[in-house]
Structures are given as structure tokens and as C-alpha cells.
């Protein structure tokens, strides 16, 4: 039970950090936001003249790599305080790319204040949340990426062990993802040693697991007794190596790597938990003898994968 409470606390701290960090991460100055796929909202900070704002010619909007090709603005709407403007477009915008809005000769109370630029892209928080959800459910590592199966089948016989494993795994996952990211960015890429990736990542994971093992043994023997068993298993789990490799492959930043690791870990824990609860029920069932054990576990996993197809294509923002 202690583990659960510990994990809950860790999860809350994470969430809190995320909430605090999110406005900091997101650029605040000179930025706009997509409202819907055909609208961009920009805020001037001071009231602007309505006659100026209504003139669509005062705005030029383009995608960042295509500054010479403008997106036609259909109309502009000001809010009642005349501080924020909503630009409406005829064609849908590409929400995954970055747009630049140039407002020419911003006019406030009859005075011309000069031009201003706004950068519009999907908020960092949205990107991170999307990434978390994707790694957890939509592209669940077990059910759609087929990773970590050995441990998944090996440890999911009892719910309690499954939960313990899931929690330990998530913690180790997040930390090793961050460490690997730092090593990759500041050492391997900086020195053009990309090809040592595999050897360095596996080494990092092994050393890290060993360190956690040693520290835990000294500092918190109770927790070690609970989690120590799984620590050894973790090194041979493919997810723990796949996450740093994918992070490196997709050029994720520090926060993205962290969230991706968290999502992968939680997704794995969810899968383990579900599988364990089903397997406990299955033990009482009259499964045909040739299917007992692993074969039926595979079939059940297949059915889970079928149900998880429901999440495919999900995008909250």
C-alpha cells in the first residue's frame, strides 16, 4: 500500500510541476494562438483602433518557411475592449506548423505605433499533453508497439506484482529518459559520436538501475524489499531502451523526452494492471489445455489491442 501512496505523491508533484511550468514554457510575448482551424487570435496589449483593425490589408499572415506566400485574411474581429483581435481565414490552417502574423502600422487612439510580429503555433502544453496521451493510450507501447512483452507476460500474473512493477518501471523510465537525453544531446551529438548511441544508452540504463538498487538498499530497505525484485528485470525490458532511442530519433527536447518517458511508463503500467486483472479471472476459467499459459495470454493481449484501436487517431487539441 505504501508504494501506491508514494507513487501518488510522485504523480501529484509531476502534475504540479507541469502546471506551474506550462505558462513558462509557452512563449507569452508576441505570440498568438490558434482558436479553431480557421482562426488565429492575437493580443495587442493596448486598445487599437477599430477602423485600422477591420482593414484586412493591415495583416499579412504566412507559414514560417513560406514568407513569400501569404494566407488571405477574410475578416478581423475585435473584442469589446479592442485589445484582442481574431483573424478569420477562408482556408483551414495547418495547425501543426508555425505561422507568422505581421500587423502593419498598428494604430492606437489615432497614433501609429509601428509594425508588430506575432508567432502562432500550437502551445507547448498542448504538444506535451498530446505526447503524453499518445505514449500512454493511442500508441500504447505494449498494445500497439509490441514492446516490453517479455516482462508484460512474465510479471502480469498477479495484480499486486503488476502494480509494483508498473510503478517502479515508470519511475526508472522517466529518470533514465532524462539522463539519456542529456547524454545524447550534450555528449554524443556534440562530439558527433551518434554511432555509439546503442552502447551508451544500454550502459546508462544498466548503471542507473544498479545505482537505484544500491541507494534504495541503503536508504529505504522497506521499499527495496518491495521493488528490488523488479529492478533487475527492468534492464532487460525493451521499452527502457526504446524510449531513449526514439527520443534521439525524433529529436525531442528535455521536456518532451521526460513526458514521453512518463507516458511510456504509465502506459506500460496500465497495460500490466489490465492484463493482471484479466489473468486473475482467467485462472478460474476452463481454458483449453493446449492454450493454457502463454498462448491464451497472447490471445487476450490481441483482444486488448483490438479494444485499444478505439483510441487510434485521437487528438485532443
Amino acid at each position: 500500500m505504501n508504494i501506491c501512496r508514494f507513487a501518488m505523491k510522485a504523480a501529484w508533484v509531476f502534475l504540479l510541476l507541469l502546471v506551474i511550468a506550462s505558462p513558462v514554457i509557452a512563449e507569452t510575448a508576441g505570440s498568438g494562438a490558434f482558436k479553431k482551424d480557421k482562426e488565429i487570435e492575437i493580443s495587442f496589449g493596448i486598445p487599437v483602433d477599430e477602423s485600422w483593425a477591420k482593414n484586412t490589408n493591415n495583416f499579412s499572415v504566412f507559414e514560417k518557411p513560406d514568407p513569400d506566400i501569404k494566407v488571405a485574411v477574410e475578416s478581423v474581429e475585435l473584442d469589446s475592449r479592442r485589445v484582442t483581435a481574431v483573424l478569420k481565414f477562408k482556408e483551414s490552417l495547418n495547425l501543426s506548423s508555425e505561422y507568422v502574423v505581421e500587423a502593419k502600422d498598428v494604430s492606437s487612439e489615432g497614433k501609429v505605433l509601428g509594425s508588430r510580429e506575432f508567432f502562432v503555433k500550437k502551445g507547448q502544453f498542448q504538444i506535451l499533453f498530446g505526447l503524453l496521451l499518445a505514449a500512454m493510450l493511442i500508441e500504447n507501447f505494449v498494445f500497439t508497439k509490441y514492446l516490453g512483452l517479455c516482462i508484460f507476460f512474465g510479471v502480469s500474473q498477479k495484480k499486486e506484482t503488476a502494480v509494483g512493477m508498473g510503478i517502479t518501471f515508470t519511475l526508472v523510465m522517466v529518470l533514465s529518459a532524462i539522463i539519456s537525453w542529456a547524454l545524447y544531446t550534450y555528449v554524443l551529438r556534440a562530439l558527433h559520436l551518434d554511432f555509439l548511441k546503442i552502447i551508451v544508452f544500454i550502459g546508462t540504463v544498466a548503471i542507473f538501475v544498479q545505482a537505484v538498487d544500491t541507494i534504495l538498499r541503503k536508504v529505504n530497505p522497506y521499499l527495496f524489499k518491495k521493488l528490488g525484485v523488479y529492478l533487475v528485470l527492468i534492464t532487460t525490458n525493451c521499452i527502457i531502451l526504446a524510449v531513449p532511442l526514439l527520443n534521439a530519433d525524433r529529436n525531442y527536447g528535455a521536456f518532451e523526452s521526460l513526458i514521453f518517458g512518463l507516458g511510456a511508463g504509465v502506459g506500460f503500467a496500465i497495460a500490466m494492471f489490465l492484463m493482471a486483472s484479466v489473468r486473475e479471472k482467467l485462472e478460474l476459467a476452463r481454458v483449453p489445455a493446449t492454450f493454457k499459459g502463454l498462448p491464451i495470454a497472447f490471445v487476450v493481449t490481441g483482444l486488448f489491442a483490438l479494444a485499444f484501436l478505439g483510441f487510434s487517431g485521437l487528438s485532443i487539441f
Binding site: 494492471f273 486483472s277 479471472k281 479494444a307 485499444f308 478505439g310 487510434s312 487517431g313
Partner: peptide, 24 residues
């Protein structure tokens, strides 16, 4: 699933997903 997912209809998948949780 209906509003944000990849399919127009989500009743079947949502029941299957909740079925996963039934034992718990």
C-alpha cells in the same frame, strides 16, 4: 472518440474499453 477520435462512432470501442476494467 466521437468528438476527438479517429472514428465517427465510438460506442463499440468505449464498451470494449470499459469491459477491460470490469474485473477491477
Amino acid at each position: 472518440i466521437r468528438l476527438k477520435g479517429g472514428y465517427p462512432e465510438g460506442v463499440a470501442y468505449s464498451i470494449l474499453l470499459m469491459n477491460c476494467l470490469t474485473p477491477s
